[in-house]
């Protein structure tokens, strides 16, 4: 077991190095420092201005170790990223680490409720539809799921904002406050939309898992014991479906971020999503590089944690 954990961690570190390399190729080799400077200064910038900008922002050294072994961008990139020394924004010079820290709390206030609510709701709905498998409820449920999956999140957000915020005046259309007494009013609409927009795909997935599980032999045994259908679903099927559910949850976490990227920007929530959108619009390459790295790191950590907890919880998983 320990050997497995160590091996898994080792591979995780390797992947982190791989991600950093991909980022380096993207942000230094494909988009060269000259490109970055030109995006920041405008297409008509003079050569001297570009050189100055590069020198000021630390983009003026050679890229690869074979160009200059001691002082090169590749080394600096790895060195600073791994020490979480993220530097300052290319655009306005604010420390990136500070902006990340500031964005965490507002982001969590919408991603955490979305995550918890949507997990509960979709698993329950999945169970419900699976309970009525091969009936019209099931057919209608699956059709609704496919329907929901065919709508762009843009439409969910615009439609939700229009319907609830503007026509019904239930909640404010946008804005944010960390003060708990008014926060709920601001996050209610984005959370509702966030839950709804991902529901179709999740419910359909969980339904498939549950339906497949109901066909297994041990379910027949439970029925032959005299267990009722509800008991079979809740005690046997749900418990055996935890692994696919867990896997799905880990896989969807980055998508949660995608959803919140748009939600935050739409509803004026000053979180990490808004930070990302801002840096895209301002061509702030360094901030973007840091954001990609930080989220990849979280994702890799999540994957390692799931893999290890599988191995711990379920010894049927072969330790490969």
């Amino acid at each position: 077991m320990l050997a497995y954990i160590l091996r898994r961690l080792g591979y995780g570190v390797g992947v982190v190095f791989g991600v950093l390399f991909v980022l380096f190729v993207l942000f230094f080799q494909i988009a060269t420092p000259d490109d970055i400077a030109r995006r920041a200064l405008g297409e008509k910038a003079r050569a001297q201005d570009i050189e100055d900008w590069k020198a000021n922002n630390g983009y003026d050294r050679p890229l690869w170790p074979w160009q200059d072994f001691r002082d090169n961008q590749l080394f600096t990139h790895y060195h600073s990223m791994l020490r979480f020394d993220f530097g300052r924004s290319d655009v306005d010079g604010t420390p990136i680490a500070r902006r990340l820290r500031e964005g965490v709390a507002p982001s969590l206030t919408i991603t955490v409720p979305i995550f918890v609510l949507s997990l509960l709701l979709t698993v329950l709905l999945g169970l419900f539809v699976a309970f009525f498998r091969e009936t019209y409820i099931d057919i209608a449920g699956v059709f609704l799921c496919v329907l929901g999956m065919s709508v762009s999140i843009l439409l969910y957000i615009i439609g939700g904002q229009f319907l609830i915020g503007k026509l019904l005046h239930w909640f404010p259309i946008s804005g944010f406050d960390l003060d708990p007494s008014v926060m709920l009013r601001f996050i209610a609409l984005p959370v509702m939309i966030g839950v709804l927009s991902a529901a179709g795909g999740d419910v359909r997935f969980y339904r498939t898992v549950f339906v497949e599980e109901t066909g297994r032999d041990y379910v027949r045994t439970a029925r032959a014991k005299g267990a009722g259908e509800l008991r079979v679903m809740l005690r046997h099927v749900l418990r055996n479906s935890l692994i696919p559910i867990l896997t799905r949850v880990v896989v969807t976490i980055p998508f949660l971020f995608v959803g919140s990227l748009l939600l935050e920007n739409f509803f004026g929530i000053p979180g990490l999503g808004s930070l990302t959108v801002d840096s895209i619009q301002q061509n702030d390459f360094r901030t973007l590089r840091v954001i990609v790295f930080v989220f990849s790191l979280m994702f890799i950590g999540g994957q390692i944690a799931t893999d290890i907890s599988y191995a711990a919880v379920d010894s049927r998983v072969r330790l490969e």
Binding site: V15, V19, F27, P254, F257, V258, V292, F295, S296
Partner: peptide, 11 residues
């Protein structure tokens, strides 16, 4: 390991 939308944006 890179969230796909972020990779997409970066690319």
């Amino acid at each position: 390991s890179i969230p796909s939308l972020l990779l997409l944006i970066a690319l």
